[in-house]
Amino acid sequence: MRLVLERFLHNAGALLAVTTILFFMFRLMPGTPLAAYINDNLNADQQRLMLEMFGLDKPMWMQYFIYLGNLVHGELGLSFFQRRPVLDILLEVLPNSLILTLTGLVVAYIFGVLAGAWLAWKRGSWVEGVAVPIVLASRAAPEFWIGMVLLALLSFNLGWFPSGGANSPGMFYTSEWQRLVSLDYLQHLALPVLTLALYLQGLPLLLMRSNMLEVMHEEFVVMARMKGFSQWRIVIRHAARNALLPVVTAFALGIGISMGGNVVVETVFSWPGIGRMLVTAVANLDYPLAQGAFLMIALVLITMNFVADLLYGVLDPRVRHGRAG
């Protein structure tokens, strides 16, 4: 319990730090401090509303606390171009990003864990000599480039998948849920997920492989052999179970990290997610929207850091009982 509290405070501190950095970053942007919230796209009423809401006529330190207060209430201002509350816009695209990221990660981690364990088993064989450089190469290729090649090959050349977006134009759905489970959506999802999975599988694979190699030398695995357990039981129940610990943590961290990385993949596939929203907002100098999108991504990242900390405690009794090693 103390550990949970400690990790919570730590991550809450990180969140506060990120919002603070963001506050000052947006105020140091070229233009007047007002530029962060108000531009000519907003009509006079909207401009006055912003002025009051963010206390832009008050000193910097007061603005900072007003800003924090607004954040707590989910008040992120109005988008310059869409003239709608930033939060509404973000909540609309957030599911798309989460679905893309989670599906990609799940595919990547299932493949990576299995392949990593298998490669550890094949230690010293030609398979290892071929596979490890290929995995390294997949980690080295730019994420969006993998997407471009897949897009050219599987979509434009072979016509297997649609080339972008989340739904075909002209489709109509009675509810958001219906949209998300429609075959059309899944078809659009496939290629970005494949890209993400290809890019992300390297980490769990290499992690699992090296953990397995390490664990296989551990005394308790040797003892399991001495006890005469079956090969399967030794590898799965003892070696893999222990080797999996850091991989699970990496998974939770991966949600946050790849949410950030998604800005490029979402752009390649015109996927209406939060990353692409950020890019568009920055390109349009839509400060409130850009700030909101960035905060949202940071929030997911930090939340997942916290989840990862907790997961590690759940899975590793040594941490759970507040004693390392």
């Binding site: 551990e218 005394e219 308790f220 040797v222 005469g228 040594r318």
Partner: peptide
């Protein structure tokens, strides 16, 4: 294969590392 642990058992040098940390 048959005798292991049933007839011949082993007490390791370091009991800490010889017990799997994730099970009771």
């Amino acid at each position: 294969h048959d005798l292991r642990w049933r007839q011949i058992a082993y007490v390791p040098q370091s009991a800490m590392s010889s017990l799997d940390p994730v099970y009771t």
